[in-house]
Design a protein around this nucleic acid. Structure first.
Length: 494
RNA sequence: GGCGCCAUGGUGUAAUUGGUUAACACGUCGCCCUCUCAAGGCGAAGAGUUCGGGUUCGAUCCCCGAUGGCGCUACCA
């Protein structure tokens, strides 16, 4: 606990606010963990808010997966879309009226304005600015439109967005609880779009309005938000509200130090769960990122539970430098947890994950007509239980294809798989489309993917297998194949 | 390009917050144990704290600058 909290009676309320745009992200787990600890340490409330204002990237199954992933980790929330709470609804798509009203407030007090610029106009302006090596900013075309002009455009039914009117001069400062004061000159703060032309708010508006209405005391989020914090601070001012405290956690990184991404690292919590990582290990590992635990404990063991983190973790201790998410160390930690399990517990862990009844039943259905003795079960299904298969070149390389074009095509397959809905029909269409476009026969196309997924040219049906194996793990396998081949192309043998 | 953040071995973290031979863990390597592989035990290599200036009797730690990395620069979050 910090002195900060002992001298105030304010209720601590924090939130984690993921967007349902895909698989639940390991970064969400990290930020969720910190928020959870912070709330529990101060008898505060931990809120889950779903930020589904991007209808283009919205994925219907995502929200449920987020719930499940957070439950899996044991990061239980006090208020949220599913459990309700006094400040709901907790799904932004159900709060559009609220945002509309608040945008109108800003329009009325002159801190926001309607902008009728088209995407093309903005794009052109941006190009010019980039070419002239100027900062790419909204040119301000609609900032001072006459009332009559606005009325005319409105009457003509022209679509518009609402932008915040950032003061032309001066600067905005705020305190980041980990880094101290941070200042931005207004000349470097753009007139951010607050309401999109589809009637949905952008993150910035929705976030500020919700955090205020939901009485959030501490905004604990990822570092990538630092640059937009001045906009948020300005919005609090525009509304005449008190801003919360801001804590920006370091960004988890890939091995190459870039922001952690699915192209370079498994980031789906679904993957970690299906691949057989224990939630305790994941939480422990995440707790290691950035420090946070007191040195006495950290130096002594590096192994601790969620309860121990709630007991001893100090968010103020976190170092702002972005830690590399080191899969190797996570695996070691996971092994430690696995070894510490009593035999029955270990068996139970197996049976609830990689050897669950549900999983086995699905796999059985795929091989029943393909084996003659039950003893053959393993021959055909090994890949479902292996962490990885590494098909040799003579298995995956089609007869009439070069290594280069095959690897390029595999990379294309990966891209397609990443963006395709995980159903038989959708996968079949998407894959065949890709094959048609690139001049790959269905046989070559599917055979390559089969080799990558199963390590063999003989297997249960491909699409069904992919569905049973799961999107997260299938993507991981294909990505690994592509990466491995890219890194170390096998020497051409004469 | 602009703006911002950051900077201790390959990786994650320590360093009584100016005084240590810069510590621990992962990884790597070696040895032991052993039917194999792990696990376990023992040991080793690996940073003089990005670099350059200050301040100081003394800087990993404070200040300035440079460099580098990262983030943002969307009607994405």
């Amino acid at each position: 606990m910090t002195e900060n909290d002992t001298q105030t009676t304010e209720e601590i309320r924090v939130r984690v606010a993921p967007s349902p745009t895909g698989d639940p992200h390991v970064g969400t787990a990290y930020i969720g963990l910190i928020n959870f600890i912070y709330a529990r340490q101060r008898q505060g409330k931990f809120v889950l808010r779903i930020e589904d204002t991007d209808r283009a990237r919205f994925v219907a199954t995502s929200e449920q997966m987020i719930f499940e992933a957070l439950h899996w980790l044991g990061l239980e929330w006090d208020e949220g879309p599913d459990v309700g709470g006094p400040y709901g609804p907790y799904r932004q798509s159900e709060r559009t009226e609220i945002y509309r009203e608040h945008a109108d407030l800003l329009l009325a007090n002159g801190t926001a304005y309607r902008c009728f610029c088209t995407a093309e106009e903005l794009e052109a302006a941006r190009k010019h600015q980039m070419a002239a090596k100027l900062p790419a900013r909204y040119p301000g075309t609609c900032r001072h439109l006459a009332v009559a002009e606005v009325e005319a455009q409105l009457a003509a039914g022209k679509p518009y967005v609402i932008r915040m009117k950032v003061p032309a001069h001066g600067s905005t400062s705020f305190r980041d609880e980990l880094r101290g004061a941070i200042t931005f000159e207004h000349t470097n703060v753009d007139d951010q779009v607050l309401m999109k032309s589809d009637g949905y708010p952008t993150y910035h508006l929705a976030n500020v309005v919700d955090d205020h209405l939901m009485r959030i005391s501490d905004v604990i989020r990822a570092e990538e938000w630092i640059s937009s914090t001045p906009k948020h601070v300005l919005l609090y001012q525009f509304f005449g509200w008190k801003a919360p405290r801001f804590w920006h956690m370091p960004l988890l990184r890939n091995q190459d130090k870039s922001k952690i991404s699915k192209r370079k690292n498994p980031v789906s919590l679904v993957y970690y769960r299906q691949a057989g990582f224990l939630p305790e290990a994941m939480l422990n590992f995440l707790g290691l990122m950035g420090g946070g635990m007191p040195a006495e404990i950290n130096n002594a063991t590096e192994k601790f539970t969620l309860a121990e983190m709630v007991e001893h973790f100090d968010v103020k201790n976190i170092r702002p430098a972005g830690p590399v998410f080191d899969l190797t160390k996570l695996r070691w930690l996971n092994g430690e947890y696995l070894r510490a399990l009593p035999p029955e517990g270990f068996y139970a862990a197996l049976r609830s994950t990689v050897l669950s009844d549900a999983y086995l039943r699905e796999i059985a259905a795929l091989v029943q007509t393909r084996i003659e003795t039950l003893g053959e079960f393993g021959n055909l299904t090994g890949f479902f239980f292996a962490e990885n298969v590494a098909p040799p070149q003579d298995v995956f390389l089609p007869k009439k294809r070069t290594l280069e074009e095959t690897l390029a095509f595999a990379a294309e397959q990966l891209t397609v798989l990443e963006t395709t809905e995980w159903t038989h029909a959708a996968l079949e269409i998407a894959l065949k489309q890709l094959g048609d476009a690139q001049g790959w026969s269905v046989k070559e196309n599917f055979m390559l993917l089969r080799a990558i997924l199963t390590g063999s040219t003989m297997s249960p049906p491909l699409l069904e297998s992919m569905i049973v194996f799961g999107k997260a793990r299938t993507l991981d396998r294909v990505r690994r194949f592509v990466d491995a081949q890219k890194k170390a192309p096998p020497p051409k043998k004469a």
